[in-house]
Design a protein around this nucleic acid. Sequence first.
DNA 1: GAGCCTTGATTAATCGATTAATCAGGGTGT
DNA 2: ACACCCTGATTAATCGATTAATCAAGGCTC
Lengths: 315, 315
Amino acid sequence: MTPKLQDLAQALGVSTATVSNALSGKGRMSADLKTRIRDAATRMGYAPSPSARALRTGRSGVIGLVLPDIANPLFPALAQAIEAEAQARGMGVLIADSRGEPAAQDDALHRLVRQGADALVLVPRRGTLVPDLAVPVAVIDAASNPASRINADHVGGGRLVMQHLLEAGHSDILIVGQSRTSRVQADRVAGMIDALPSAAVHWLDDGPLPAPAALRATALACTSDLIALPLLTRLAAAGLRLPQDMAVTGFDNHAFAALVAPGLTTVAQDLPAIAQGALDALEAGLNGQPAIAPRTVPMYLIPRGSTQTTNRRDQ
Amino acid sequence: MTPKLQDLAQALGVSTATVSNALSGKGRMSADLKTRIRDAATRMGYAPSPSARALRTGRSGVIGLVLPDIANPLFPALAQAIEAEAQARGMGVLIADSRGEPAAQDDALHRLVRQGADALVLVPRRGTLVPDLAVPVAVIDAASNPASRINADHVGGGRLVMQHLLEAGHSDILIVGQSRTSRVQADRVAGMIDALPSAAVHWLDDGPLPAPAALRATALACTSDLIALPLLTRLAAAGLRLPQDMAVTGFDNHAFAALVAPGLTTVAQDLPAIAQGALDALEAGLNGQPAIAPRTVPMYLIPRGSTQTTNRRDQ
DNA sequence: GAGCCTTGATTAATCGATTAATCAGGGTGT
DNA sequence: ACACCCTGATTAATCGATTAATCAAGGCTC
């Protein structure tokens, strides 16, 4: 098996405390001995036992991540960003899926705590409350959710889309949303309408979109790429050309947005910044510092062929 | 803070050993005392410390999952399946992304072990070797990778696609693959050719596909939905109707395959079965049982509008 | 040369749960 | 009545790392 602190100590003829101090840099000791110990540690392939360290220090170095639906293509990119940021801070990421009933979200949160997570990142299923937990929780959601600690500026993202379409010369713009009960989508629509109060809104929950030919608009501003994708193929099948006959925009920069032809103009979240903000909040909580004020991160527009003709190929 | 074993013991006037035995069901004790202890445990909200238990038992109850690229839409569904299966077995899942250099894969594996994973599930980046580790590793890949412990029957999946297209009356079929160095894609192509030896193959690594009008085929059999998606939109833009003028199939049943119109016929992996097989292999390894023989799980075809006209709507 | 500070290292307690070894005491068998 | 066994519980060691408290020895000052 992998050597433990005592094996190292014995091999060097010193005490385990000295070895521990040498590796952590704490305490006083001769520089010579310190390097001797460190060399031996790497030579023997020493790695501290995570459970022993966690037991003693009270920190496992692992954070929990609760997503509403791992398979939903929106979240993997976020998971990746959080994993990267956590890794950079020397932490691991335990995942959990709150798929199914909202009660599963509470289960997932508690389960992660039971499994030793020091802190949690939660992307809440909508309409759920965050339970009281013994560990810090960073909620990533729309700014309109007061529990949210860190969020993309969905309202600003909506404005970006509309400004982009207005600059492209559109004035008859139809906003297409999935569900008005989604805070994120509501924020996005609010931003869009803020930039163009005359825009009409169609919620797919209230009924399907009219046939492409019957649409009295020159641009469709969707609150999600997932909404835009079926429209893209339907419009193409109906013989409408993008962007000349109809412009389309989405949200979230899903993987396929760059793959379709023409590419789908969309608005992306600054996921690294969000991950960083979330972990900042968690570390503050872990260190007993006062709660950080909620942070809102700007979104950015990714223009592609669905709204503008370019000379370079869109992938 | 959350109560510990000793708090429970004190509250009940018994020893910690008795409490531990009552909760685990081991040892001898009066039925009365056992229920009294268990009641008190739930009433006081007792939860065992994961690190203490892990330190003593040598098991953390956490497995590591290494994916080549979390953001690649192929993997989240697998991650979800593994998370679900792990949860059902009372285990947690630590994720890691081997994004970037293949060396990152080794790093990720070692990092997860350092973080306390009892065992690992690895979806290998192609062309990489699996390092020797102190814990069991289940490799999920193509059957043509001898290191693979559990894999979908990509060859059989290829046959399914071709049989489906042949039954639909196609004979001029062009197989479209991304890269011949991918084991998974090579297996899929092999299965396709097995079912229709006369089929032509175009590797996108060797050059882009000719313009839609120049294609002398009535069906495009892609080795991945990601390859099929841009084709779908290009074909539509070129005025070709699916499936009448051209049939298209993909692989992997990505989230968007059901969203495009018409839906994309594709072949899916039985992810729950794969997750189950992977965890079976790991548990066998953890219990010191002999290694399970590699398992191959059948794939299944999901027919959609891109190959056949139906009366029901494809979402 | 006696007292004191500094340096460099050790001792031993601690984190919380698990578990093998042990023990007290009532009931049985002969 | 004596030895024996079984039941129901306790004692104490253990997992491996961290860290406060302690100690030995050498160097200084006056």
